[in-house]
Computed example of a mutant assay.
Amino acid sequence: MPELIDFQDAFVAALTGDRPALSPWLTDGDHPGLAVYRNTIAKGCVDALADNFPTALSMVGEDWFRAAAALFAREAPPASAALLDYGEAFPGWLERFPPAAELPYLAGIAHLDRLWIEALFAPEAPALSAQALSSLSPETLAQTPLSPHPSVRFAAFDAGLPSLWRAAREGREDLEISETPETLLLVRRDGAVTHRVVGAAETAFLRACRQGLTAGEAAQAAAMADPETPFASPFATLIADGVFVAPL
Protein backbone atom coordinates (compact mmCIF):
# COMPACT_ATOMS: atom_id res chain seq x y z
CA MET A 1 0.00 0.00 0.00
CA PRO A 2 2.75 2.58 0.75
CA GLU A 3 4.33 1.81 -2.64
CA LEU A 4 0.97 2.34 -4.37
CA ILE A 5 0.57 5.70 -2.65
CA ASP A 6 4.11 6.66 -3.63
CA PHE A 7 3.37 5.73 -7.25
CA GLN A 8 0.14 7.74 -7.27
CA ASP A 9 1.91 10.81 -5.88
CA ALA A 10 4.71 10.41 -8.41
CA PHE A 11 2.21 10.00 -11.24
CA VAL A 12 0.44 13.25 -10.31
CA ALA A 13 3.80 15.02 -10.07
CA ALA A 14 4.78 13.70 -13.50
CA LEU A 15 1.55 15.02 -15.00
CA THR A 16 2.46 18.51 -13.81
CA GLY A 17 5.87 18.33 -15.45
CA ASP A 18 8.14 16.65 -12.90
CA ARG A 19 9.69 14.12 -15.27
CA PRO A 20 12.03 12.38 -12.81
CA ALA A 21 9.12 11.68 -10.47
CA LEU A 22 8.35 8.32 -12.11
CA SER A 23 11.95 7.29 -12.63
CA PRO A 24 11.71 4.39 -10.14
CA TRP A 25 8.94 2.91 -12.30
CA LEU A 26 9.86 4.19 -15.79
CA THR A 27 13.40 3.66 -16.99
CA ASP A 28 13.04 5.22 -20.45
CA GLY A 29 12.49 8.81 -19.31
CA ASP A 30 9.27 10.68 -19.94
CA HIS A 31 6.80 8.13 -21.27
CA PRO A 32 4.81 9.37 -24.30
CA GLY A 33 1.62 8.07 -22.73
CA LEU A 34 1.86 10.78 -20.11
CA ALA A 35 1.20 13.37 -22.82
CA VAL A 36 -2.26 11.91 -23.33
CA TYR A 37 -3.11 12.38 -19.65
CA ARG A 38 -1.57 15.86 -19.60
CA ASN A 39 -3.58 16.95 -22.65
CA THR A 40 -6.77 15.55 -21.14
CA ILE A 41 -6.19 17.43 -17.90
CA ALA A 42 -5.29 20.63 -19.75
CA LYS A 43 -8.45 20.44 -21.86
CA GLY A 44 -10.54 19.82 -18.76
CA CYS A 45 -9.09 22.92 -17.10
CA VAL A 46 -9.67 25.08 -20.18
CA ASP A 47 -13.23 23.79 -20.57
CA ALA A 48 -13.93 24.51 -16.89
CA LEU A 49 -12.61 28.06 -17.20
CA ALA A 50 -14.73 28.61 -20.30
CA ASP A 51 -17.80 27.43 -18.37
CA ASN A 52 -16.97 29.49 -15.27
CA PHE A 53 -16.12 32.72 -17.12
CA PRO A 54 -18.62 32.80 -20.01
CA THR A 55 -18.91 36.58 -20.08
CA ALA A 56 -15.17 37.08 -20.30
CA LEU A 57 -15.07 34.48 -23.08
CA SER A 58 -17.81 36.28 -25.02
CA MET A 59 -15.87 39.55 -24.82
CA VAL A 60 -12.63 38.22 -26.32
CA GLY A 61 -13.71 35.24 -28.41
CA GLU A 62 -13.12 31.52 -28.17
CA ASP A 63 -9.58 31.39 -29.55
CA TRP A 64 -8.17 34.22 -27.41
CA PHE A 65 -9.81 32.96 -24.27
CA ARG A 66 -8.75 29.33 -24.66
CA ALA A 67 -5.16 30.30 -25.39
CA ALA A 68 -5.06 32.45 -22.25
CA ALA A 69 -6.85 29.77 -20.19
CA ALA A 70 -4.29 27.15 -21.24
CA LEU A 71 -1.45 29.37 -20.01
CA PHE A 72 -3.26 30.04 -16.74
CA ALA A 73 -3.91 26.32 -16.19
CA ARG A 74 -0.19 25.61 -16.50
CA GLU A 75 0.64 28.24 -13.89
CA ALA A 76 -2.27 27.51 -11.56
CA PRO A 77 -3.47 23.91 -11.88
CA PRO A 78 -6.61 22.95 -9.95
CA ALA A 79 -6.15 22.07 -6.30
CA SER A 80 -8.93 19.45 -6.38
CA ALA A 81 -10.65 17.16 -8.83
CA ALA A 82 -13.84 19.26 -8.70
CA LEU A 83 -13.65 21.93 -11.41
CA LEU A 84 -17.07 23.49 -10.84
CA ASP A 85 -15.52 26.56 -9.23
CA TYR A 86 -12.03 26.38 -10.74
CA GLY A 87 -10.43 29.74 -11.53
CA GLU A 88 -10.51 31.74 -8.30
CA ALA A 89 -7.19 33.37 -9.24
CA PHE A 90 -8.06 33.86 -12.93
CA PRO A 91 -9.30 37.49 -12.72
CA GLY A 92 -6.14 38.59 -10.89
CA TRP A 93 -4.03 36.65 -13.37
CA LEU A 94 -5.68 38.52 -16.25
CA GLU A 95 -4.67 41.81 -14.65
CA ARG A 96 -1.02 40.76 -15.03
CA PHE A 97 -1.41 39.04 -18.41
CA PRO A 98 0.40 41.25 -20.98
CA PRO A 99 -1.94 40.52 -23.95
CA ALA A 100 -4.87 41.72 -21.79
CA ALA A 101 -3.29 45.16 -21.30
CA GLU A 102 -5.31 46.45 -24.26
CA LEU A 103 -8.51 45.14 -22.64
CA PRO A 104 -8.64 47.05 -19.33
CA TYR A 105 -12.19 45.93 -18.65
CA LEU A 106 -11.49 42.19 -19.01
CA ALA A 107 -10.23 41.48 -15.48
CA GLY A 108 -13.28 43.25 -14.03
CA ILE A 109 -15.60 41.24 -16.26
CA ALA A 110 -13.88 38.04 -15.12
CA HIS A 111 -14.17 39.18 -11.50
CA LEU A 112 -17.94 39.52 -11.87
CA ASP A 113 -18.12 36.08 -13.50
CA ARG A 114 -16.25 34.75 -10.47
CA LEU A 115 -18.67 36.43 -8.05
CA TRP A 116 -21.54 34.75 -9.90
CA ILE A 117 -19.89 31.35 -9.34
CA GLU A 118 -19.31 32.15 -5.65
CA ALA A 119 -22.95 33.19 -5.23
CA LEU A 120 -24.12 29.99 -6.91
CA PHE A 121 -22.13 27.67 -4.64
CA ALA A 122 -22.45 29.62 -1.38
CA PRO A 123 -24.01 27.85 1.63
CA GLU A 124 -27.76 27.81 2.11
CA ALA A 125 -29.45 29.99 4.73
CA PRO A 126 -33.01 31.22 5.27
CA ALA A 127 -33.53 34.76 4.02
CA LEU A 128 -34.96 37.52 6.18
CA SER A 129 -38.55 38.13 5.10
CA ALA A 130 -40.56 41.33 5.19
CA GLN A 131 -43.00 39.64 7.56
CA ALA A 132 -40.25 38.80 10.05
CA LEU A 133 -38.88 42.31 9.77
CA SER A 134 -42.28 43.86 10.46
CA SER A 135 -42.37 42.14 13.85
CA LEU A 136 -39.49 44.31 15.04
CA SER A 137 -40.07 47.75 16.48
CA PRO A 138 -38.19 50.62 14.78
CA GLU A 139 -35.97 50.93 17.87
CA THR A 140 -35.14 47.22 17.89
CA LEU A 141 -34.47 47.20 14.16
CA ALA A 142 -32.13 50.17 14.44
CA GLN A 143 -30.06 48.32 17.04
CA THR A 144 -30.01 45.01 15.15
CA PRO A 145 -27.16 44.02 12.81
CA LEU A 146 -28.39 42.68 9.50
CA SER A 147 -26.13 39.93 8.23
CA PRO A 148 -25.86 39.54 4.45
CA HIS A 149 -27.00 36.20 3.07
CA PRO A 150 -24.04 33.81 2.43
CA SER A 151 -24.66 34.06 -1.31
CA VAL A 152 -24.55 37.87 -1.43
CA ARG A 153 -21.74 39.33 -3.49
CA PHE A 154 -21.34 42.93 -4.60
CA ALA A 155 -18.61 44.90 -6.31
CA ALA A 156 -18.35 48.65 -6.95
CA PHE A 157 -16.63 50.16 -9.98
CA ASP A 158 -15.71 53.70 -11.01
CA ALA A 159 -17.37 53.11 -14.39
CA GLY A 160 -20.34 51.21 -15.78
CA LEU A 161 -18.67 47.81 -15.89
CA PRO A 162 -21.64 46.05 -14.22
CA SER A 163 -24.00 47.18 -16.98
CA LEU A 164 -21.47 46.06 -19.58
CA TRP A 165 -21.20 42.67 -17.86
CA ARG A 166 -24.96 42.26 -17.74
CA ALA A 167 -25.36 43.20 -21.41
CA ALA A 168 -22.69 40.71 -22.47
CA ARG A 169 -24.08 38.04 -20.14
CA GLU A 170 -27.51 38.44 -21.71
CA GLY A 171 -26.11 38.31 -25.25
CA ARG A 172 -27.05 41.89 -26.12
CA GLU A 173 -25.23 43.81 -28.83
CA ASP A 174 -25.19 47.23 -27.13
CA LEU A 175 -21.85 46.60 -25.43
CA GLU A 176 -20.86 50.08 -24.34
CA ILE A 177 -19.34 51.12 -21.05
CA SER A 178 -20.41 54.36 -19.39
CA GLU A 179 -18.36 56.58 -17.11
CA THR A 180 -21.01 56.42 -14.38
CA PRO A 181 -19.91 54.55 -11.23
CA GLU A 182 -21.93 51.37 -10.67
CA THR A 183 -22.22 48.52 -8.19
CA LEU A 184 -23.39 45.03 -9.11
CA LEU A 185 -25.29 43.03 -6.50
CA LEU A 186 -25.66 39.26 -6.82
CA VAL A 187 -27.69 36.93 -4.61
CA ARG A 188 -28.99 33.39 -5.00
CA ARG A 189 -32.69 32.78 -4.53
CA ASP A 190 -34.38 29.40 -5.05
CA GLY A 191 -31.25 27.98 -6.65
CA ALA A 192 -30.83 30.79 -9.20
CA VAL A 193 -28.42 33.71 -9.04
CA THR A 194 -30.03 37.09 -9.66
CA HIS A 195 -28.12 40.30 -10.28
CA ARG A 196 -28.87 43.99 -10.62
CA VAL A 197 -27.12 47.34 -10.51
CA VAL A 198 -27.63 49.17 -7.21
CA GLY A 199 -27.08 52.78 -6.23
CA ALA A 200 -24.71 54.49 -3.84
CA ALA A 201 -27.09 54.26 -0.87
CA GLU A 202 -27.57 50.51 -1.21
CA THR A 203 -23.85 50.02 -1.69
CA ALA A 204 -23.06 51.95 1.50
CA PHE A 205 -25.76 50.06 3.41
CA LEU A 206 -24.42 46.68 2.27
CA ARG A 207 -20.85 47.61 3.15
CA ALA A 208 -21.90 48.68 6.62
CA CYS A 209 -23.86 45.47 7.16
CA ARG A 210 -20.89 43.41 6.00
CA GLN A 211 -18.78 45.20 8.60
CA GLY A 212 -21.21 44.11 11.32
CA LEU A 213 -22.77 47.52 11.98
CA THR A 214 -26.36 47.83 13.13
CA ALA A 215 -29.22 48.59 10.76
CA GLY A 216 -29.39 52.10 12.17
CA GLU A 217 -25.69 52.71 11.56
CA ALA A 218 -25.99 51.22 8.08
CA ALA A 219 -28.93 53.53 7.36
CA GLN A 220 -26.82 56.51 8.39
CA ALA A 221 -24.10 55.38 5.99
CA ALA A 222 -26.70 55.10 3.22
CA ALA A 223 -28.01 58.59 3.94
CA MET A 224 -24.50 60.03 3.78
CA ALA A 225 -23.83 58.29 0.47
CA ASP A 226 -27.04 59.61 -1.11
CA PRO A 227 -28.68 62.35 1.01
CA GLU A 228 -31.32 63.20 -1.61
CA THR A 229 -32.90 59.76 -2.02
CA PRO A 230 -35.16 58.28 0.67
CA PHE A 231 -33.83 54.84 1.58
CA ALA A 232 -37.15 53.17 2.45
CA SER A 233 -37.81 51.93 -1.08
CA PRO A 234 -34.28 50.58 -1.79
CA PHE A 235 -34.29 48.90 1.63
CA ALA A 236 -37.60 47.18 0.85
CA THR A 237 -36.12 45.98 -2.44
CA LEU A 238 -33.10 44.51 -0.65
CA ILE A 239 -35.44 42.61 1.68
CA ALA A 240 -37.51 41.38 -1.27
CA ASP A 241 -34.32 40.19 -2.97
CA GLY A 242 -33.45 38.05 0.07
CA VAL A 243 -30.20 39.90 0.67
CA PHE A 244 -30.16 39.37 4.45
CA VAL A 245 -30.20 36.20 6.47
CA ALA A 246 -32.99 35.51 8.92
CA PRO A 247 -31.92 35.54 12.59
CA LEU A 248 -31.77 32.13 14.26
Rank of each mutant, 00 (worst) to 15 (best):
Arg114Glu: 00
Ala56Ser: 14
Ala73Asn: 06
Ala208Gly: 05
Val197Thr: 11
Ala156Leu: 03
Ala35Cys: 07
His149Glu: 04
Leu248His: 12
Phe154Pro: 02
Ala222Lys: 02
Asn39Tyr: 10
Glu102Tyr: 01
Ala200Thr: 07
Gln8Tyr: 03
Asn52Asp: 06
Asp85Asn: 06
Val187Gln: 00
Gly212Cys: 02
Leu57Asp: 01
Pro150Phe: 04
Ala127Thr: 07
Ala110Ser: 11
Leu4Thr: 12
Ala159Ser: 14
Gln8Ser: 04
Ala222Leu: 05
Arg188Asp: 09
Tyr37Val: 08
Val60Glu: 04
Ile239Pro: 01
Ala76Trp: 10
Ser151Tyr: 03
Gly87Asp: 07
Glu118Gly: 03
Ala76Asn: 15
Leu115Pro: 01
Phe65Cys: 03
Ala192Gln: 12
Tyr37Lys: 09
Pro20Ser: 04
Asp85Pro: 01
Glu179Val: 12
Asp226Trp: 05
Leu164Glu: 02
Tyr86Met: 11
Asp9Ser: 14
Gln8Ile: 05
Pro78Cys: 06
Ser137Lys: 05
Arg188His: 12
Glu88Gln: 14
Pro32Asp: 06
Arg172Val: 03
Val193Cys: 03
Asp51His: 13
Arg19His: 11
Pro32Gln: 10
Pro150Gln: 05
Leu22Arg: 07
Asp226Ile: 02
Val152Ser: 02
Ile5Gln: 14
Pro230Ser: 08
Leu184Gln: 09
Pro162Cys: 10
Arg153Gln: 13
Leu206Tyr: 02
Arg166Phe: 09
Val198Ile: 15
Tyr86Gly: 11
Thr140Glu: 00
Ala73Asp: 04
Phe11Glu: 07
Arg207Lys: 14
Ala246Glu: 00
Asp241Ile: 00
Thr194Arg: 13
Gly92Val: 03
Ala223Ile: 12
Ala50Tyr: 08
Pro77Val: 12
Gly92Ala: 15
Ala110Arg: 06
Pro54Asn: 09
Ala89Cys: 05
Ala50Val: 11
Ala236Ile: 04
Gly33Tyr: 02
Ile5Ser: 13
Glu173Asp: 14
Phe244Gly: 00
Gln143His: 12
Thr144Asn: 00
Val12Trp: 01
Cys209Val: 02
Pro230Met: 10
Leu94Asn: 07
Ala101Phe: 11
Trp116Val: 03
Pro227Leu: 05
Arg153Pro: 02
Asp113Cys: 04
Leu161Lys: 06
Ala69Pro: 07
Trp116Phe: 09
Cys45Glu: 14
